[in-house]
């Protein structure tokens, strides 16, 4: 009889936990620290301080003539894992190096939403947004030319407004573009003979 009580109690606790878990935010099945929000869910304690943005990723484009693939970043894009390790640069710098002029994507109207405090309900308009610990790329600027900026991307980075319209390349493509630019760049010329 005592054993029967124990089993019943365990089952009841398990059912309670399951039902409570359904009320809190749902994690992705990838095992990463990110979650897709559902309107009305409550913010769990371990997600307090996370940042939620619309679930968008950079747009991939290809320059067929040059055989270059690149990604165009927009504000609040979340860098997916397959773009981790890519390098982004501002569009004017990219155009200078590659002679490719990139159209800037439409500006994002939404603002980031910080998940806090614990137990706060997710607003309905944030349904489908992605929440993750806040991280953004670190921008490096040239010492001599301030308009030359680059940033290394990592999976889970949220693109800030300052990087809206930036272009990202994988490292090998960047190495190739860099080598071409440095061998043919405007400052690489010596005077012609008279």
């Amino acid at each position: 009889m005592k054993r029967a009580y124990t089993v019943f109690f365990s089952v009841a606790v398990a059912a309670l936990l399951v039902s409570l878990a359904g009320c809190f935010t749902e994690r992705e099945a990838l095992g990463k620290d990110r979650a897709i929000l559902k309107g009305g869910q409550q913010v769990s304690g371990d997600m307090v301080g996370w940042v939620a943005v619309p679930n968008t990723a950079p747009e991939m484009r290809q320059e067929k003539n040059r055989n270059i693939s690149y990604a165009v970043l927009s504000t609040h894009n979340v860098i997916p894992e397959n773009l981790s390790g890519w390098v982004a640069m501002n569009p004017s710098f990219f155009a200078k190096m590659t002679d490719i002029k990139v159209d800037t994507p439409p500006a994002t109207a939404t603002e980031r939403w910080v998940l806090k405090p614990e137990g706060k309900s997710v607003p309905k308009d944030k349904n489908g947004w992605i929440a993750l610990p806040f991280s953004e790329p670190q921008i490096e600027s040239s010492a001599h030319k301030k308009d030359r900026e680059m940033a290394a991307l990592a999976g889970g980075n949220i693109i800030p407004k300052e990087m809206h319209g930036w272009v990202a390349l994988d490292r090998e493509t960047l190495a190739k573009v860099t080598a071409e630019f440095m061998n043919k760049g405007s400052g690489s010329e010596l005077p012609k003979t008279k």
């Binding site: 390790g85 390098v87 190096m97 490096e140 600027s141 040239s142 010492a143 001599h144 030319k145 030359r148 680059m150 940033a151 290394a152 490292r171 090998e172 960047l174 190495a175 190739k176 860099t178 080598a179 630019f181 440095m182 061998n183 760049g185 405007s186 400052g187 690489s188």
Partner: peptide, 26 residues
């Protein structure tokens, strides 16, 4: 210089890369 810059790009050494790129133009 281009080799070094390309290597810097491959290793995501952005400071070196920007520095090398600065050498290209005056």
């Amino acid at each position: 210089r281009a080799r070094e810059a390309a290597e810097a790009a491959r290793h995501m050494d952005l400071k070196t890369l920007l520095s090398r790129l600065d050498d290209v133009e005056d």
